[in-house]
Design a protein around this nucleic acid. Structure first.
Length: 636
RNA sequence: GCCGGGAUGGCGGAACUGGUAGACGCAAGGGACUUAAAAUCCCUCGAAAGCAAUUUCGUGCGGGUUCGACUCCCGCUCCCGGCACCA
């Protein structure tokens, strides 16, 4: 989930000279192949060029101010109206020497890349919309190979040859020599699975776009105007918050010494407890008693930092502190980290999967780089395994105190016991899914435990009759298939709901089992013992109670997990599903390792199957061992 | 807008590595036991047709690959979560 967050992208950094100035405008692009199609430049509102241009342009200054107040949230940036303003300065194209107007645009972020972009309206949706809005020219530079010899000129916005495709999403370009030829101006490669060729690009004309990207980057490097670059989408982390609740930032601001760290002996900085919040943006800034201190460096009156840390500052490494909770001297002891880290299994809500984990990974690597533990001896990542568990819902909405739709577990525990409550939650849905709370489901869980309890009555059944070998074999198979299923549920993922379902099936089999002889009873007891052991993680109190009934010498919860008896799983005869043309037409009993010819002969002898084979020639036969036989036929 | 996840009976959900779709449970209906109720036990339970045997259709929608698709591929729709200052 984090791959796209970190957003590694490779491309090129390109330097554009600013006209009549010594300044250079650096930009990052993932599409250096479109460099010849640049028709303008766009910078962020906070970019030095924009700020400088605003010094003697009041209108521009107002616009920049406006931009400063907008949200930096991605969702907002992506959906807001794209606005911009020309700065009145030009940049020089590094290859052609053309002058390109520099604009300031609200969708360019200062904190990402260089805070400036080159705009290629012919091959980028956002640039296209922007240039349409402000009437900037559009210059296509990549076209499908089949139009290589057409003449596609730069198009001014007034040109009638600009239109939209049938889906009204992508602009259409028409050839000047043949108005019937129209192509869409997308990133041609990704849309059509074939590489476009460069046009309008001087010496790079005719190159496939990938090759052009390499060649243009190489040209830039040679001429000292740019180079290859890998860019990450990661932004800086602003760690201060204007909140009361939070760890104080241990910094003191002194007029003479600047920002001074609080000396270690004065740590921790404790929040004032008598603060009356007034509803202002930064509560601590109004608390004189907290703020005013002497500068630790020069002793003059100074002020504490009034912001507190982002809570992610702490939540990112708390699990490491658990490892070394008693350490007085360090955040975490290197030896403890080596012994315990990383976390084997981390469980949290999906809402934490990106942010919290991203910060936690950052901290882990930071702590390693700072030498708080040995990176060679502790894994590179803080968590081995992540399970994002779902929420408990009532009538389709999240249970929460504020909504007042919580179910009181006490009432259920009082009525059915905590084992029932636990069993229901585990059985109702897989852990990563949301769970719809249903009282009737709770009763079902309780009913199941009652059924298990009643199985113990069967221990008193007198056995003096004949044993039936087949029924013993069948029961033992069910027992060991169940052990296998439940064990797998623990080992692969956390399919507790499936594990419980399997135990219900075993319970049903034990309940239906009729005992006449000693061997039969032994098999029944074997099944009951396995069942109790497997139930113990889900319903520990109940299982222990059952264990006593069975005469376990230890509590059921600490008994060894039952082992699968591989011999009990083996079947001599299996049901083989017979398909004709991939459709189920019958079932036959066959020996477990029947060969294809024998299976086919048996299938043909089966009346249910035979009628589908009438008047047909068998073309192909597919046997899946122990599962099915598919007969492919055609009319003869 | 971008990124991630999802969609299967009346409901929650099963289905291994492409191999019998609907395990298990809930709800519903019918029956047994009982003076009665509760509890318990048995039967039915995706849709349509049929007395039945059985047949056809069916895993959000439209295509494709395959002997065979809930599962793989292409194109959509809808729902949920996240999007960096809610903390």
């Amino acid at each position: 989930m984090q791959r796209n967050w970190i957003g590694k992208s490779s491309g090129a950094e390109v330097s554009f000279k600013v006209e009549n100035s010594d300044e250079v405008l650096d930009i990052f692009t993932t599409r250096p192949d479109t460099l010849m199609g640049v028709t303008y430049m766009a910078v962020a509102a906070g970019h030095p060029l924009a700020i400088k241009a605003a010094e003697n342009n009041a209108e521009l200054a107002v616009f920049l101010k406006e931009c400063a107040t907008i949200s930096t949230k991605e969702a907002d940036i992506a959906t807001m109206e794209k606005k911009g303003m020309a700065l009145g300065i030009n940049a020089i194209h590094p290859i052609t020497g053309e002058t390109l107007p520099v604009w300031v645009a609200n969708f360019v972020l200062m904190g990402y890349g260089t805070g400036a972009v080159m705009s290629v309206p012919a091959h980028d949706q956002r640039d296209f919309e922007f240039s349409r809005k402000y009437g900037i020219s559009i210059k296509p530079v990549i076209i499908p190979a089949k139009y290589e010899n057409e003449d596609f000129a730069t198009i001014e916005m007034s040109s009638p040859s600009v239109g939209f495709g049938s889906d009204h999403r992508w602009p259409i370009l028409q050839s000047e020599s043949d108005s019937n030829i129209a192509i869409t101006w997308d990133h041609w490669d990704s849309q059509h699975g074939e590489q476009g060729l460069l046009v309008n690009s001087g010496e790079f004309n005719g190159l496939p776009s990938k090759q052009a990207a390499t060649d243009i980057t190489a040209w830039l490097k040679e001429n000292n105007k740019g180079e290859e670059k890998i860019q990450y989408r990661l932004r800086d982390w602003l760690v201060s918050r204007q909140r009361y609740w939070g760890a104080p930032i241990p910094v003191i601001h002194c007029d003479d010494c600047g920002a001074v760290a609080v000396p270690e002996k004065d740590l921790p900085v404790v929040l004032p407890e008598d603060l009356q919040p007034t509803g202002g943006s930064s509560p601590l800034a109004e608390c004189e008693a907290f703020l005013n201190v002497d500068c630790p460096a020069c002793g003059k009156p100074a002020q504490r930092e009034a912001d507190t840390f982002d809570t992610f500052m702490e939540s990112s490494w708390y699990m490491n502190r658990y490892i070394s909770a008693r350490s007085e001297t360090a955040m975490v002891e290197a030896s403890d980290m080596q012994r315990w880290a990383p976390v084997d299994q981390y469980i949290g809500g999906v809402e934490h999967a990106v942010l919290h984990l991203l910060y936690a990974r950052f901290y882990h690597k930071l702590m390693r780089d700072m030498g708080l533990f040995d990176g060679k001896k502790v894994a590179n990542e803080p968590f081995k395994n992540l399970l994002t568990q779902g929420m408990v819902l009532l009538d389709g909405t999240k249970m929460s105190k504020s909504k007042g739709n919580t179910v009181d577990p006490d009432a259920i525990i009082k009525r059915f016991g905590c084992d029932t409550a636990r069993l229901f939650t585990l059985f109702a849905a897989p852990p990563e899914k949301d769970l719809e709370w249903e009282d009737s489901g709770v009763e079902g869980a309780h009913r199941f435990l009652s059924r298990v309890w009643r199985l113990f009555e069967k221990l008193n059944v007198e056995v003096a009759g004949e044993d039936d070998e087949k029924s013993v074999k069948d029961l033992r198979r069910v027992i060991h298939v169940t052990i296998e299923k439940v064990t797998r549920a623990f080992e692969h993922g956390f399919a507790f709901n499936v594990a419980i379902a399997a135990q219900m099936e075993l319970t049903n089999a034990l309940q239906a089992f009729e005992m006449k002889g000693k061997v039969e009873k032994a098999a029944f007891v074997e099944g009951l013992q396995a069942l109790v052991k497997m139930l113990s993680p889900f319903v520990p109190h109940f299982a222990c109670e059952c264990g006593e009934q069975l005469g376990f010498d230890k509590a059921a919860v600490i008994m060894a997990w039952p082992e699968v008896d591989a011999a009990a799983l083996v079947q001599d005869e299996v049901v083989l599903v017979v398909q004709v043309q991939g459709k189920k037409r019958g079932e036959i009993m066959v020996s477990k390792d029947v060969d294809q010819d024998t299976a086919l002969r048996l299938a043909q002898a089966d009346s249910a199957v035979a009628k589908w084979l009438e008047g047909m020639t068998v073309v192909k036969v597919i046997l899946v061992k122990g599962r099915l036989l598919n007969i492919v036929v055609r009319p003869s």
